[in-house]
Design a protein around this nucleic acid. Structure first.
Lengths: 96, 96, 96, 96
DNA sequence: AACGTTGAAATAGTTC
DNA sequence: GAACTATTTCAACGTT
């Protein structure tokens, strides 16, 4: 009998290869995630505010336009809810 | 002047309603979370191991979910990888 | 024989009561969480930016001081990394 | 003038180093995530059900973890609630 | 290509 | 205050 390569209609060897490759990559990914955690822990130990560092990194990843857009919508809502001083609205402009 | 309903292009009343409804619901949710904490505190006061109780509840939730697992392609793959006992394969069926 | 109320040294009835009460409360909590999701979904359907709404709600929950503090640290770091224009530093003040 | 190492009270060089190290690691992590996506894409191209493969990998991870579960108070409670077959109880042992 | 769904990452809260 | 857990947020994936 030939070595089993198909079971239930699937190519066992190929499937096993796929699963193993992914598991290997996920291990590597997890290792790097652990490294990142270590750096944050070290930073914290040196008195840095890790939450702020995360924010900085996030801002650096976004391009300027994205930052602009997000803050615009948020500010619009805050103004609508009276959380920020109002700017001249379109309506008021027209009325003028 | 009509009552302001739009500012900066947003429907103020609608936005305010959304925010208030969510905040109300989050209050209720927080109240229930407090109740849960109380029950755990009481249990602990009566000598129970709260960590174990948490585990039990989690397991009961998992058991309930696992019932509805789909058992099709997944099982085939698991069998192919030796994670489940094999069934008679198509090939073997043909051979019979 | 009396009805079993202890097994392995545990007060079964009491334990069962605790578990059931918690499960009941967690059901209620899950229901409210679903309601919240519904409100967000409805808001989205009406063209609102749900992420911004989440931010608004978070800001309303924080008091002004908290917001202030967070932004201060972040800005300090951004300045340190040249992401924002510098302010007069302490050192420079001394030098003057 | 000495090279600037502190601004607004923060150690600039150290902060910059932290941020760069994290960004470097995140790049590597993203690269690996891309590799994983490639493997899935290839698998899909070869006719495999990627969703099922994901399930298999998840199950293999769970199996590995469940081995190390603690089996003490938890089991006692599960037995008390009928989630596990009973063992001879202390009382019954005494009775014998 | 937007939508909901799902899984991972991050934050907040709790316990010791 | 450090570790663990739980909740919340964010991103990826398949789907329509």
């Amino acid at each position: 009998m030939t070595k089993k390569t198909r079971a239930g209609g699937v190519a066992v060897d190929q499937l096993r290869s796929i699963v193993q490759r992914i598991e290997k990559l996920e291990e590597e990914k997890a290792a790097i995630a652990a490294d990142i955690r270590d750096v944050f822990a070290e930073a914290k130990g040196n008195g840095f505010d890790t939450k702020a560092i995360r924010s900085v990194i996030k801002l650096r990843k976004m391009d300027a336009q994205e930052v602009e857009e997000q803050e615009t919508v948020l500010d619009t809502y805050r103004r609508a809810l009276g959380m920020l001083p109002e700017m001249a609205s379109e309506d008021e402009m027209e009325a003028a």
